[in-house]
Design a protein around this nucleic acid. Structure first.
Lengths: 342, 342
DNA sequence: GTTAGCACTCTCGATCACTGAGTGCTAAAT
DNA sequence: ATTTAGCACTCAGTGATCGAGAGTGCTAAC
């Protein structure tokens, strides 16, 4: 168990280190106004904390730096969210007040605000596409042989894919097909589309459409939703201003992670909704051992949850980021639900 | 005027420097098998080339490095495109052979191939949205008050935006409106949509729809195309492996440029189609004084031109990149036109 | 339990000498 | 008239050395 004083010292040390990025020594802690222990006393406690694994030294006679265990303890027990100034709060609220013509737009703005107010990198992950339901289908012919299949989901998300038309299909037939589909597949979850095509649509098509087998092929093709949800970033270069990223190789490793959507999706995959903090190696992913990730979820109507995250160095301003990401996820949720029901 | 030997030396020196990234000395040039001049002779010529502004020294007694003027001369007069191995050619062709469900997909793959085979960063800029023509409009109601407006262009590009519905508008009315719009606005360039709404649609709506003023407001809103064309990147981290980017500040400057779509669009704006090479400061943009940019255009049917670019250090493997970007732009054009007319 | 004092460790920056690569210039060779 | 050999000179980079400064651990006194 940690003594009161040790708790205090750990907290002060982490706070200090977050700001300075330099190993913190006993003397500099003891100089603070709110501390009236001598350097020697502090040294003893720091030595204990180090022995217990909460602190580390960069070399034999340096000041201390929090270990991952230390950060973990800090965020679990010593973290008090930062209170934002009225000023900042106002600016952020203002950013969400304007009208957004596209959902993508709103997501972009959210990412930008988050990265600008934290000075780290913001990552936005849309809700799982496959969980959405079909609201409307449309098939537009572009030329004799090519067309676009458009899928609108219940959240207002729009997917599109190019399809090649069987030759000589008639315009009325296209209309008929679309009507059948919209009738039969309304509000079906996207991941079931393929299956329902066989069970519910095939028979009707057979009855109504001449060349129904080719049409089925076209539909199968057009309704294959493999496309994963999109990922947006903002402030990628912010993280580079952190002193821990003066080493180019770390930068390369990090940017490589960002370039792989799969990795990022894996990285942001959390066991439940709400706020999560992953520190350093707790992220099971090469290249970001020196980063911390804070995620939370936002909702895009009903139970469609998206994820918003901030990634920065382990030495992250946790109090501020926690407050910020929480606020911004709530504002985003509000904006999205307003769009739906206003 | 440059002598034969000077031309040769300039070419050899640039080629050498492109590979080694180190200042090139007279001795190392003279050691090549295809050169039989002594270091002293070469030194004299290099001194002349330097005097004429084609070469520079990093310090008084260092080897030479090409100046921007030197690179310019090199690409204008000494550049012979690299011939790709059958092997590489095959792999690249193969990548374009598979089926793409979305145009975006194809663009992504193009960017990836280009960055992987050049080891620099690829940038893809879609055709100007505003030049496209309206092929099909759709208005989908999501809830009582919200809907999605979908715009399909003649190239198969799909745009969408959320709109708020006037209360109590009837489903048949929505259908009527859409029919009118599709009738009146077919093949109108997107940049004219707003204007045509007033001149051609207003009167018809007035006759047919009860609450026509509110509907007009909705349409005005939904048809405002301000959204600029999208930009894709691939291999952002490749460029960081170049020794000239060991300085973090250059990296930050470059990534900042990448984060601003406006800047990148400005950067890639060329006076004409076809291949362009911009070296260093020829790019009028802070942050990329040390980069070269090679762009060319691809076509997405008719006269919709998009731009594809490779950005790397001034010391770029020009012969290879020129060959590569040319090949890939052609393959992309072919894939896009195949999609339309196959 | 807390603090003062002291010897010890390690980093960082400055200085210095040395090496190697490269140049410019002059005079000899072709 | 070119081309080349020879030589003195310049400069970046490396490694060794040194002192200052910050910090620690330990012991003994408060």
């Amino acid at each position: 168990m940690l003594t009161e004083r040790q708790l205090l010292l750990l907290q002060l040390l982490v706070n200090d280190y977050i700001i300075s990025a330099e190993p913190v020594g006993s003397r500099s802690i003891s100089k603070r106004e709110d501390v009236h222990y001598s350097p020697a006393t502090i040294r003893n406690d720091l030595a204990d904390l180090e022995e217990m694994g909460y602190l580390e030294k960069t070399h034999l006679s340096s000041g201390r730096v929090p270990s991952e265990k230390g950060y973990r303890f800090y965020v679990d027990h010593l973290l008090s969210p930062e209170i934002l100034s009225q000023n900042e709060l106002g600016t952020i609220r203002e950013a969400f007040r304007r009208k957004f013509s596209e959902t993508d737009d709103l997501i972009h703005v959210t990412a930008r605000v988050l990265s600008e107010f934290t000075n780290y990198t913001a990552i936005m992950l849309g809700p799982e596409l496959l969980d959405m339901r079909l609201k409307h289908l449309e098939l537009v012919k572009l030329s004799e042989s090519q067309g676009v299949m458009i899928i609108v989901t219940d959240t207002g998300h729009v997917e599109n894919r190019t399809v090649s038309f069987p030759e000589l299909i008639k315009a009325e037939d296209v209309e008929k097909i679309i009507n059948i589909l919209n009738d039969k597949l309304n509000m079906v979850p996207l991941y079931q589309l393929q299956a329902r095509l066989d069970t519910e649509v095939r028979a009707v098509l057979k009855k109504n459409i001449a060349d129904y087998q080719r049409v089925m092929a076209l539909l199968k093709d057009g309704l294959s939703i493999s496309d994963p949800n999109r990922i947006f970033y903002s402030g990628k270069s912010n993280i580079l201003e952190q002193p821990e990223f003066r080493d180019i190789n770390k930068v390369i490793a990090l940017l490589n992670v960002f370039e792989s959507n799969d990795l990022v999706r894996e990285l942001m995959d959390m066991p439940s909704g709400g706020l999560h903090i992953r520190i350093g190696r707790e992220n099971k992913l090469n290249g970001i051992e020196d980063c911390s990730l804070i995620t939370t979820t936002y909702s895009a109507g009903d139970d469609h949850l998206g994820t918003v995250a901030v990634i920065g160095p382990k030495r992250m301003a946790y109090p501020r980021v926690v407050t910020m990401i929480d606020l911004i996820a709530k504002l985003l949720t509000k904006s999205l639900s307003k769009e739906k029901s206003e």
